[in-house]
Amino acid sequence: MVLNREMTLHFLSSHKTTILTEWKERLKHLSDGYIEYFEEEIEKILNSLMKQLKNTDTNIDDMLKDLGEKISAGRVKQHLNMDMFFSITSTGRSIIIDQFLAYEAIKGELSAVIHQINAYFDKLIYFALSSYTDLKTKQVAEQYQLINPNHKDRLTLLGQMTSSFVHEFRNPLTSIMGFIQLLQAEQPEIKYLDIISKELDQLNYRITQFLNLSKRETDTTQNEIFPIAPLVDEVIEFLYPSILEVNATVSCNIEGDAQLAGSKEEFRQVLLNIILNALDVVTETPNPSIDISGSVASGFLTLNISNNGPKIPSEVLPSIFEPFITTKKRGTGLGLFVCKEIILKHQGTLTCHSTDFLTTFSIRVKTKS
Score class of each variant (00 low, 15 high):
Ser130Gln: 10
Asp356Gln: 13
Val282Trp: 04
Ile180Arg: 01
Glu284Trp: 10
Gly331Arg: 05
Lys328Gln: 14
Ala128Ile: 06
Ile19Met: 02
Tyr126Arg: 13
Asn223Ala: 08
Thr302Lys: 14
Thr302His: 08
Ile207Arg: 02
Ser354Pro: 03
Arg330Gly: 07
Ala229Asp: 13
Pro286Trp: 07
Ile190Phe: 07
Phe324His: 15
Phe179Asp: 12
Val281Met: 04
Met7Tyr: 10
Leu301Ser: 02
Ala278Val: 08
Pro310Gly: 08
Asp122Asn: 15
Thr8Tyr: 02
Leu49His: 10
Gly108Ala: 06
Met82Arg: 05
Leu9Gly: 04
Gln181Lys: 15
Asp57Thr: 11
Ala278Ser: 15
Lys329Tyr: 06
Arg75Ser: 01
Glu22Ile: 04
Leu129Thr: 14
Phe300Asp: 12
Glu199Phe: 02
Leu173Ala: 03
Ile363Ala: 06
Asp134Arg: 07
Gly68Asn: 04
Ser94Ile: 09
Leu30Gly: 01
Ile114Arg: 08
Glu284Lys: 13
Arg330Ala: 09
Ser90Gly: 13
Ile225Asp: 06
Trp23Arg: 04
Gln259Thr: 14
Leu200Lys: 01
Ala128Trp: 00
Arg170Ser: 13
Tyr144Arg: 15
Leu129Gly: 12
Glu341Leu: 09
Pro313Gln: 06
Thr332Met: 09
Asp219Trp: 05
Ala229Gly: 00
Tyr120Asp: 03
Asp57Trp: 04
Leu193Ile: 08
Leu231Pro: 02
Leu272Trp: 06
Leu279Asn: 02
Ile275Cys: 02
Ala128Lys: 05
Glu189Gly: 07
Lys340Pro: 06
His15Thr: 15
Ile363Arg: 07
Ala185Lys: 14
Asp122Lys: 09
Thr133Phe: 09
Val296Tyr: 03
Lys368Cys: 14
Ser298Ile: 01
Ser214Tyr: 14
Gln145Thr: 10
Thr283His: 14
Glu142Val: 09
Leu158Ser: 14
Ile290Cys: 03
Ile305Ala: 01
Leu9Tyr: 10
Pro310Glu: 11
Asn204Cys: 00
Asp194Ala: 13
Glu189Asn: 10
Leu53Gly: 06
Met50Ala: 08
Glu43Ile: 12
Gln181Pro: 00
Pro227Glu: 10
Thr220Tyr: 11
Phe165Arg: 00
Lys28Gly: 01
Glu322Ile: 04
Asp57Ile: 09
Leu260Arg: 06
Val166Cys: 00
Arg93Gln: 13
Ile180Gln: 06
Pro188Ile: 05
Arg5Ala: 10
Ile243Arg: 11
Gln209Glu: 14
Asp280Cys: 07
Ile236Val: 15
Leu183Trp: 04
Gln78Val: 03
Leu231Gly: 05
Thr221Trp: 10
Ala297Asn: 11
Gly309Thr: 04
Met1Leu: 12
Asn55Gln: 13
Leu157Pro: 00
Ser319Asn: 15
Val316Lys: 10
Ile274Asp: 04
Ala248Ile: 05
Thr327Asp: 12
Lys329Ala: 15
